[in-house]
Design a protein around this nucleic acid. Structure first.
Lengths: 329, 329
DNA sequence: TCCCGAAGTTCGATTTAAATG
DNA sequence: GCATTTAAATCGAACTTCGGG
């Protein structure tokens, strides 16, 4: 038997086949090399509580042996015992949504800090795909689930499915009132309010608006913010200056429609126009960091068997004044 | 002892704590419910070769029991034995690269077809981050690695690290000559050739060019394609009509610089200009599908212990004529 | 009781070898 | 040998328990 194994190793050492090094080295190999039991090796390498009692000399020998053999613990085995995957699921409803990339990078970055790895899934706004992915992620025991609601309508039953998922779940971009799913959203009302205020303070009184489609969850609170400012400041909202975007649910076409609308408007005035844009900036970094924080917090709750309840954060957007808005002189 | 467990279950059933259902149901529970051994259950549910000998009645009973209990196999345990993770690593060097989203979606979609899940990592163009992520992905036994080279320079030693990674590795967007790492690139020379040809056939003879920075791997072959067409057609390349972008490595700023350059050019001619753009379209879908195919192919090679060698594909881009180019009348 | 280390059990599924009729 | 089923070994790490100094 020993002979056979020895032959295998030789064969392996000689062949170009890449599957060679796939960690044939187990904790027992390290134990043998160091001259201790695998128990001791495990305790030392994980710096478990019991490691307190183990003399430095023993630790040194074990660490040296581990390094020499290039030991890498088998995460399957580890996960099987610990029931932890060190993985979170990230669910996007439509990756082509321009909003997505930024959020994804933010999530990735936050997770990196805490040594989690994200499994990325794109639901393509399809119910069946959502179900399948949710199942797959739960099967893999992701420790938390971050859901990125896009501009579009998210069906209610999707939320219902998420609610019974039994792991910390965070939804970014959609306001929720449930107490089983956390949420992180931008405060559209405050943002819109600030935007109009900005213009108002620059001296503008005749302000035109392009309203987003009603099916978009973001549209309503923004309009609310605008009216709220108008009321408190006495600004008059001229109905002739309010245009509505078509009810399309495609973010790209919404962008284009908005662009075209603006263009026509400007063309009518026969003016060339390409300044940098004043905008209400969504606090991306802060939002994703928040999402991941909630995720890890939730994970910890589960580990420590504490009860966890959902968290809902509304982040305040920032007004960034640029060239496209200017005071009346 | 039994009592204690019974109490626990009760407690769990009563509490709101979400960690309840985390698959307490094992294959043994199903076995007990069905009245067979766990061996038989495993054979039936996996439709293993031995399932041939198992009578339909037995199968029915087992499947019913599994469904009744809502049995979901523990993937950690399964992976521990099978040594398979059904996961591939996706490594991006800079997610904010506009090119990225499209490719990512393509990869995700292809993987979905084959029931793999992607672990997404963004290296941020940092060497240390690259190393750490590579290690993490290998520790998780990703079955393949898809690397998305961005516009930027990829250090050579990164490639060296990838070469010894011992799993099927595919690089998208960078031409390679190694035979341990596969690659999928767009043929920039052919693309550029086709673009100039398009203009030429429309009757244009005075054509201006904006050249990308030399540090960009894409720039050289494109210019080569242009000169190649010029030579074969007799088209004269006027040096005064060739502008170079600054050597910046930031894709965003490159875009902006290109935009500004074009704008100035057009402004000089005092003309307002906003047609849809004729372009050389990179065959995104095809490329990512190709990448994932190579990945799964590589995985299969490893499973079947076949030797695998790298594959290098160069995809032909497509000329898409739109409004911005027009024939001389 | 404190310190050090090891033997043996556990996690949950797959697989080999073997036992029935 | 064939059809049907299963006990026991295995994967690799972590933890519980125990023994000797």
């Amino acid at each position: 038997m020993f002979r056979l194994i020895a032959t295998c190793q030789l064969l392996v050492a000689n062949c170009q086949c890449p599957m060679v090094k796939t960690s044939v080295i187990t904790i027992r190999d390290v134990a043998k090399e160091a001259g201790f039991s695998s128990t001791t090796v495990s305790i030392v390498l994980n710096n478990a509580p019991l490691a307190r009692y183990i003399p430095a000399a023993t630790k040194k020998r074990i660490e040296k042996a581990a390094k020499k053999l290039g030991y890498r613990p088998n995460l399957f085995a580890r996960s099987l015992r610990s029931k932890r995957s060190h993985t979170v699921g990230v669910m996007v409803f439509d990756m082509t949504d321009p909003y997505c990339t930024l959020v994804l990078r933010g999530i990735e970055n936050s997770l990196y800090q805490s040594s989690y790895l994200p499994i990325l899934t794109d639901v393509h706004n399809e119910r069946s795909r959502f179900e399948r992915y949710l199942e797959m992620l739960l099967d893999r025991r992701v420790e938390a689930l971050i859901v990125l609601a896009n501009w579009l309508f998210v069906e209610v039953d999707v939320l219902a499915d998420l609610e019974r998922s039994s792991i910390p779940t965070i939804m970014i971009g959609r306001e929720l009132q449930t107490d089983t799913v956390s949420s992180v959203v931008v405060d559209n009302e405050v943002g819109a309010y600030a935007a109009v205020e900005h213009l108002y303070l620059l001296g503008h009184r005749k302000i035109a608006f392009i309203r987003g489609p009603k099916t978009l969850a973001d549209s309503a609170p923004r309009w609310r913010g605008i009216r709220s400012f108008a009321k408190s400041s006495g600004l008059e909202l001229d109905p002739r200056l309010v245009l509505d975007l078509p009810e399309s649910r495609d973010p790209i076409s919404s962008f284009e429609a908005g662009y075209k609308l603006t263009e026509e408007w400007i063309k009518r005035k026969d003016r060339f126009y390409n300044p940098s844009l004043t905008a209400v900036r969504q606090p991306m970094d802060a939002m994703e960091t928040m999402a991941v924080n909630i995720a890890t917090e939730g994970i910890n709750s589960v580990i420590e068997k504490r009860d966890l309840s959902a968290v809902h954060r509304k982040m305040v957007p920032e007004m960034v004044a640029r060239e496209s808005t200017r005071a009346f002189l």
